[in-house]
């Protein structure tokens, strides 16, 4: 294990965040605050409670997940795509590092960043609504698992993408709709039966449900189901990344 290399990549990526602090931290905080104002206050005045939780508090876990997912993906995909774009990838390719170590550095840094971000958003939310976390351990567990899984997913996108459009298209056309339709702003039981069925196929729905349970002990599906869907997606990403490394896809000529 070339631990100095993993540390070097990790440090390098974390330093990049410091430099782009506004883009990485401030702007998601601002947009989340806007969600609170618009959805929490405007709609919250009409819908007072869902499953015994005030509407403002109800949407907090979903909003955190929204940022966690999109930031994990964009951090990791950008992190590995950028060297390909500038050409500095030559150094990674010629270094005595395994693909796994490269992955550890990039995914580790991306996940760390989005976890920090999620905690900042949680703190921000605290200003708007009273929060209680029933199961802090499970809350952190879901946070970390999600950050790692979607950073891995982002890493795959970054390796696959050969232009900026491709880099942005998946988060935009796949992830954002999945999060919005995954029960961030409502309980699935409020939907007509047809859409309830459709929602069953949305992996993000299980995430949000599990994450929300760790706050309020209310969930659309059981914790066990959430856990397995989560693990399944993580396993899928790991398999995909292994396959990519085995085939040398898109990195080496």
């Amino acid at each position: 294990m070339n631990r100095y290399a993993v540390a070097a990549i990790y440090k390098f990526e974390m330093a990049r965040t410091k430099r782009t602090i506004f883009q990485s931290i401030i702007s998601p905080v601002i947009s989340t605050s806007l969600y609170f104002v618009v959805f929490g206050s405007a709609i919250g005045s009409r819908i007072t409670e869902i499953d015994g939780v005030s509407y403002g508090a109800f949407i907090v876990p979903g909003l955190i997940m929204l940022s966690l997912l999109t930031q994990s993906i964009s951090n990791a995909s950008f992190g590995i795509y950028f060297p390909k774009f500038t050409g500095t990838i030559y150094e990674l390719l010629s270094a005595p590092v395994s693909s796994f170590e490269v992955l550890l550095g990039y995914v580790g840094a991306a996940a760390t960043k989005s976890i920090i971000l999620a905690l900042i958003i949680l703190a921000t939310a605290h200003f708007f609504v009273p929060l209680e976390i029933a199961h802090p351990f499970w809350m952190l567990f879901f946070l970390v698992m999600t950050a790692i899984t979607f950073s891995l997913f982002g890493f795959i996108i970054g390796i696959w993408a050969d232009n900026f459009e491709k880099l942005q298209v998946i988060p935009l056309i796949v992830i954002t709709p999945l999060v919005f339709l995954g029960g961030t702003f409502y309980s699935v039981s409020m939907l007509p039966p047809f859409w309830q069925t459709v929602t069953q196929f949305n992996p993000v729905f299980y995430l949000i449900s599990g994450f929300r349970w760790s706050f309020y002990e209310v969930a659309d599906v059981s914790l066990v189901t959430s856990f397995f869907v989560m693990s399944g997606f993580l396993a899928f990403c790991l398999l995909a990344v292994t396959w990519i490394f085995k085939s040398g896809y898109q990195i080496k000529r």
């Binding site: 100095y4 290399a5 540390a7 070097a8 990674l92 270094a95 005595p96």
Partner: peptide
């Protein structure tokens, strides 16, 4: 410094 780390030093 990054290069040095990357090459395992």
């Amino acid at each position: 410094s990054f290069s040095r780390g990357l090459f395992g030093k």
